[in-house]
Design a protein around this nucleic acid. Structure first.
Lengths: 162, 162
DNA sequence: TATTGTTATACTCTATAACTATA
DNA sequence: TATAGTTATAGAGTATAACAATA
């Protein structure tokens, strides 16, 4: 009791396809963290494929999306919301600025802070990115079914707030 | 329709705790890949904390577990099963071998191949690792509830096989 | 003194090419 | 000619320390 009903990982053969002796995952079949990681990797792969042509990485997409939805927010606020360390975010923002997608406006009250905004080009690109992201999402929904897809969010958010 | 019922991400303030203006995640609230990533990071953090004292990383734990459950398997088979590139696996195995946890036995039929086995020390350590992993798992079950925990595996495995 | 954004840097993970020894 | 394991290396992603400007 406690693990008997969980179906095992699909067995993989040496060459990745059906042929010889299959490998058993043992205890790994009952490690949520491992299954989570493999699932995230698969989803990430599809995301990467779809966004490669636009030269946008997942972190860049998340940054652009949050700036669009919170125009004028500071880098510290953005860093905290996305769990990206401030030094890494500074480099990421610099790249988006060089591409003319983001602008740093001098903040009114605090002259240390940069209020982040999308440029017109940034808004235009983000609209295209959202369209690609929706197609990616539709792909996942087709894979899981809408009901199962929706039921995933709540438990995953509980894990985020561990 | 199609996203209205999905509850949004918990709002984060600049300092990470309740204080000022909260940040909205916008479209990111409906990106399974993003929620999956954040969940995986949280779970990974707990795993890291618990295994740090034993100086074992997640990839090492998965390798030891698969060798224990498939004694004598080749590095190519292991590489394919865990989706670890062969060059990276070679380095990982070398480390486990230096620590006296794994041994590479000359394969009977094919003299190029290494049949992987755990040493006695490897088996002893793995038993301790599984105990720690079970405690970690219990923590996740306490967070989600057993029913929800169990229901996560099936859809996540579907995503792995995208 | 503390905080914002930045630079420099290091460490891990992951990915590819090229080698060796076998097959 | 192809495969098993290895080496070297390059690229992301992520982490900390230290700095200038400002609070």
């Amino acid at each position: 009791m406690g693990s008997a009903k969980i179906k095992p990982m699909r067995r993989r053969t040496s060459s990745g396809e059906a042929e010889g002796a299959a490998v058993g995952y043992g205890e790994l079949d009952h490690r949520l963290g491992y299954v989570l990681r493999r699932a995230q990797m698969s989803v990430l792969d599809d995301f990467h494929r779809r966004f490669a042509a636009l030269d946008i990485r997942p972190a860049q997409y998340s940054v652009l999306t949050l700036i669009a939805n919170n125009s004028g927010l500071s880098q510290t606020a953005l860093s905290s919301a996305l769990a990206i360390k401030k030094p890494n975010l500074a480099v990421l923002i610099a790249g988006l600025r060089r591409r003319g997608l983001v602008k740093q406006v001098a903040s009114a009250g605090d002259r240390r802070a940069h209020a982040l905004h999308l440029t017109e080009a940034g808004n235009k690109l983000l609209a295209r990115l959202h369209a690609v992201a929706e197609a990616h999402e539709k792909f996942l929904i087709d894979c899981l079914g809408m009901a199962t897809y929706r039921r995933l969010y709540s438990p995953l958010r509980k894990l985020i707030d561990l």
